[in-house]
Every structure is written in structure tokens, then in C-alpha cells.
């Protein structure tokens, strides 16, 4: 194609300022799509459009068609051409270079077709949302029917998304808006234990076990220490007697040392 795109070009519709806008579906096609979803009696073929993703999403899509998740038992089959497809799966944050190929794939698929935005990048640009060279989501270029978030979505989430796209399962997630109540009050964790002792134990557990697991272990230790009637030594001996994970046992022993040191003063 030579020269600037004409404004009326159906491949790349533009608004009055000359900026590209997403493609739209006519009402007729939308009605056809509703009819297709209602009376679908055959397999749904999926074509995967990579709009500049990291391939994580592709790996999970192929995990979803392995025997463990087996999307093919529902007739969902990945095909090699958009001309065979009922469902178009857009992955990636839509880089500048991949916008036109993605539009061409969308136009090549026969109507009525279902477009699915796959992964965090496809839904809203993901971690690339503010990059200069991406469009930030497949809904910026084509009309999207279902969004499957996740980075990448697990195979089970992929199956759920397909089932939703085909109208077999209902949407579970709803937008929420919680408002702070008058009597709301944040509860301090482990009020029976002095703050500096709690901080010391949490820091040590996180140093030894990593941030997330460390917090869980520190929480367990502090709950044990503050809610027992026994002495700390007896309580910890009982806790450690059946412990099969030597790493956890070591960390708990270390926390026990700190606790015992504090108790001695």
C-alpha cells in the first residue's frame, strides 16, 4: 500500500482527528453471533493471533489442549488459518508492527466470529500498558467478546474462558466497590505480643524463608506462642515433633530461639 491510508479505508478506520479506532461489528453480524451461540451444534475452531506477546500465553493455550485439560473433548480445536476459525484468540499487548497483521486476521475470519482477549497484555496491555510502542490491549483494535485475564491464564482458566465465550458457563466475576463503614477499624495482628518482638520475628522468618512464606511461618509461630496455655518450650516441642519438613523445622527453631531470648529478657 502506497501513500497515507484513505480515511474511509475499512482496514484501518479512523476518527475525525485521523486517529485509528477499533473495528466495529454491524448489528446484523451481532445478531448472527447470538444465533450461532444459541444453536451451536458443532466444534468451535480457534485461531491464535499473536499480537506481540512473550509466548507465555501460547504455552498455556497449548497446555490447555494437552490430554490433561483436553479442550478437544469439547470440540475446541486450534487451527492454522483464520479462514477456518470461529474464535480468534488475541494474545499480547498489540505492538505497532503487529496491529495490521492482527486486523487482517480478524478480517480473514468468516462472520460470525468470536474475539477473545487473552492474558493480561491482551486485556489491558499488562505490564507493557504504558510502553510507547504498544496499543495496550486487543480491544483497542477489534471488538472483543470475552476477556480472559491472567499472566498467563492457567489452562483451567482458559477452558473457563472458552466455555464463557461459547455461552456454556456464566460469568462469575463482578465489579465491586467497597465503601468504608463508620465503625471500620484495622485490627493489629497479635496484640498480645510487643511490637518490636513481632517485628524481629517477622524479619527473621522472612530473611530465612523469603517474603511470602516467611510471613506465613511468622504468623503461625506468633499464633502458637500467643494462644497457648503451655510454656513456649513445651508448645514448640509439640509443634516440631511431627514436622517432616526440615527447612520449616529449622526456621521455627530459630524463631523459638528468638522468642526464648525475649522471654528470658
Amino acid at each position: 500500500m502506497n501513500g497515507p491510508l484513505p480515511l474511509s479505508n475499512p482496514m484501518a478506520p479512523r476518527d475525525e482527528r485521523g486517529m485509528p479506532v477499533p473495528l466495529t461489528e454491524s448489528e446484523h453480524i451481532a445478531a448472527l453471533k447470538g444465533k450461532l451461540l444459541k444453536d451451536i451444534q458443532r466444534s468451535a475452531y480457534v485461531y491464535r493471533v499473536d499480537c506481540g506477546g512473550c509466548n507465555g500465553c501460547e504455552i498455556e493455550i497449548f497446555a490447555a489442549i494437552t490430554p490433561v485439560f483436553d479442550a478437544e473433548r469439547f470440540g475446541i480445536k486450534v487451527v492454522a488459518s483464520p479462514r477456518h476459525a470461529d474464535i480468534l484468540l488475541f494474545t499480547g499487548a498489540v505492538t505497532r508492527a503487529m496491529r495490521m497483521p492482527a486486523l487482517r486476521a480478524w478480517q480473514a475470519a468468516p462472520d460470525p466470529k468470536i474475539s477473545v482477549s487473552y492474558g493480561a497484555c491482551g486485556c489491558s496491555g499488562g505490564i507493557f500498558h504504558d510502553l510507547y510502542c504498544v496499543w495496550g490491549g486487543s480491544d483497542k483494535i477489534v471488538p472483543v467478546d470475552v476477556y480472559i485475564p491472567g499472566c498467563p491464564p492457567t489452562p483451567a482458566a482458559t477452558l473457563y474462558g472458552f466455555a464463557m465465550a461459547l455461552g456454556l458457563l456464566d460469568q462469575k466475576l463482578k465489579g465491586t466497590h467497597q465503601i468504608e463503614g463508620e465503625a471500620d477499624r484495622a485490627v493489629v495482628a497479635h496484640p498480645a505480643i510487643a511490637l518490636d518482638v513481632r517485628v524481629e520475628i517477622e524479619r527473621e522468618a522472612r530473611r530465612l524463608a523469603g517474603y511470602r512464606a516467611g510471613r506465613l511461618i511468622a504468623d503461625e509461630f506468633l499464633t502458637l506462642a500467643s494462644e497457648t496455655d503451655l510454656t513456649l518450650d513445651e508448645c514448640m516441642k509439640r509443634r516440631l515433633s511431627g514436622e517432616e519438613d526440615p527447612r520449616l523445622a529449622e526456621i521455627l527453631t530459630r524463631l523459638w530461639d528468638i522468642g526464648a531470648g525475649v522471654a528470658r529478657g
Binding site: 485475564p149 482458566a157 465489579g175
Partner: peptide, 13 residues
């Protein structure tokens, strides 16, 4: 993990 939505506004919490 069942987070797929048809309406993008439902993704906002």
C-alpha cells in the same frame, strides 16, 4: 481463577 468476563468494567475492583 475463574476470572473471564464479557464486560471489561467487571474487571475493576
Amino acid at each position: 481463577f475463574e476470572l473471564a468476563v464479557a464486560n471489561k468494567a467487571d474487571l475493576l475492583q
